[in-house]
Amino acid sequence: MSEQNEIGFISNDPPHRAPGPIGSLHASLLAYTPYRWLAGKLAASGLRVRHLVIAVPYIWLLLFFLAPFLIVFKLSFSEYRIAIPPYAPIFEFIDQTYLQVRLSIDNYRLLFQDSLYIQAYLNSVRVAGISTLLTLLIGYPIAYSMVKARPRTRFILLMLVILPFWTSFLIRVYAWIGILKNEGLLNAFLLKIGLISEPLSLLNTDIAVYIGIVYSYLPFMILPLYANLEKMDMSLIEAATDLGCKPVPAFWKITLPLSLPGIVAGCFLVFIPAVGEFVIPDLLGGPDTLMIGKVLWTEFFNNLDWPLSSAVAVLLLLLLIVPIVLFQRHQQKTAESH
């Protein structure tokens, strides 16, 4: 039924009505040859308001989302040099006659030769993967319990999940510094109750990064899980119990498999951005917490090597393109079945 919208924005005037102000203006302007020519051209090209409506956000996204990626891609093949901007042009006219094209794969070679980059990529995937798993383990019971609450309570709980999701990411990460550092609140508390005799060093370790990611991305996990569990037909559980299945096995056999779409969506939503995370490893991680987002940042801001950071970005994107496409497919499928 795609064509039903075809009539949505038709440019010609309805014949059954007296012409409005625009209609009469149009009629009088038709006497003016250039206008008539333009109107004729427009009508002949089949251009409609519908197309104009589509064009506005479309062009914006092409200009500010897609084109920038192509520029990153192009730049990743250029050479670093000390200049403003700090890269050598790829296309250059020599003697106003020859077009010189200089594509360098040096940046990519460096990425594969220097183990720092490979390690950073692998480490990012590992940290993001472990954090995603932890987020799921913590988020699922919360989402599940939220659904069990009365509708009124449920709404309040939902708001409580959404609230930190909106609150400044930076501030929430920052809050953990005060808690995790050697003379921080957690150590002070543990020392006071006598559980430890010496402060634990938590800040600037991988543990702090895990805590930071789980904490920051928990709402991204809970929300799709909650949305999925809330829609679930609870008579299915009743049917299972009626057929002799105890509540705990019923959860494993009915609820969990049916909530799989929510689990998948939540995991993608945590994993994909976590791989490229910068703020959390930078503020909570240590000097040996290698994550690719941080590497890119350093190359760009500290070393001013734009071509190399572009190459890092291209590889990071290649790494993420599979999960991103999978995620979009998944979302589309869920949206269609809804």
Partner: peptide, 24 residues
Amino acid sequence: GFEIPTQGRIILDGEDMSAVPPYA
């Protein structure tokens, strides 16, 4: 008028409606 016939005409009271948009 929400769908436009691929072929054929719709005549209402002697007037051809085929190309008239729904709001008219």
